[in-house]
Design a binder for these strands. Sequence first.
DNA 1: TTCACATATATCAAATAGATATATCGTTTT
DNA 2: AAAACGATATATCTATTTGATATATGTGAA
Lengths: 178, 178
Amino acid sequence: MAKDRKIDMVILGLLSHDNLTGYDIKKQIDGSIRLFWKGSFGSIYPALSELEKQGSVRRLKNNDGGGREKIIYSITSQGKEILRAWVRDEKASNDLKYETLMKLFFGGVESKETALRNIEVFEEQIKADLKVLQIYRANIEKALDEEDHVYFYLTILFGIETYEAYLKWCNKARKVLA
Amino acid sequence: MAKDRKIDMVILGLLSHDNLTGYDIKKQIDGSIRLFWKGSFGSIYPALSELEKQGSVRRLKNNDGGGREKIIYSITSQGKEILRAWVRDEKASNDLKYETLMKLFFGGVESKETALRNIEVFEEQIKADLKVLQIYRANIEKALDEEDHVYFYLTILFGIETYEAYLKWCNKARKVLA
DNA sequence: TTCACATATATCAAATAGATATATCGTTTT
DNA sequence: AAAACGATATATCTATTTGATATATGTGAA
């Protein structure tokens, strides 16, 4: 596979906002990033080691007198330049893996009821996620003057717009199957 | 990682419609499936071998007197049952990896113009894809009476609904950034 | 006839997912 | 006060997937 590790950009991007541990990075991915990307420990920790080796991130000394081992990373100026070059690069891979759709696509091997049930499960999940996003939006709209918040806001809007489209589709799909 | 190879379901699903070679499977994934899933030769051929070993697919003899090597597979009744069990199983992983959104999320490290350009590239791609989907829809609506076509139709509708939402979001995003 | 392109199988290294092992810390329950 | 529990934290392993490449044949056009 080509030299093109996407998790590196997630890590550099998050470190451009804050100094973080690998565990922190995982938490942020599962939080604000999960709308459009994901990552596991199995990719985060090895990536952090290699980024350090190549000089894109730096380990902050933080031996505050014995206690839980904790490695806080910060981004270097080289890391920032790599991140910026990636943001400027126009090519981007956008793809989704929707098992629900696949189950529906091959729905012919099972009953219509099964198809409807799969749509229902999907709908419930989306409704729950949409509620969370709407709370995010309400909160962030109070603090939109801060520069970086605008970009976060845009991704929230993306989530809301697409999730509403999913719900519309669920209704249409039900009608088509009926 | 858990015993849970999704490519197996893509293969079994496609073989439940038709007997196909590995190459055919790849073509169908890049065609009708690509809206919600993808797969590469590097996963298809090994999966076909294992599915054959476990008795879910069968190799059809087709030595039609010398010529290009060609291995046509068909699904067995065991394979069909595995496919059906998977369709009945409610749990489904739905996730997207949108590099455009990630570039936007970390847009603060670059200029607003870069962010707008990334949105523009994304928009052009979606517009092109949407056109194709609308042609698909028009064609399939003429043949909706055939049982299996309904499920294909639903995935097309899903694509159209979400792509239209993406375009709406592009316009909103432009306004927010302005 | 040569060139490009589509068909077709197969394999490899790099990247990722998902699970698990290990250990510490803080809070709550017994 | 001890035990139990869940959150924090690093690290590693295997299975899976990607994306690229190697190899070879068939087909149509210049």
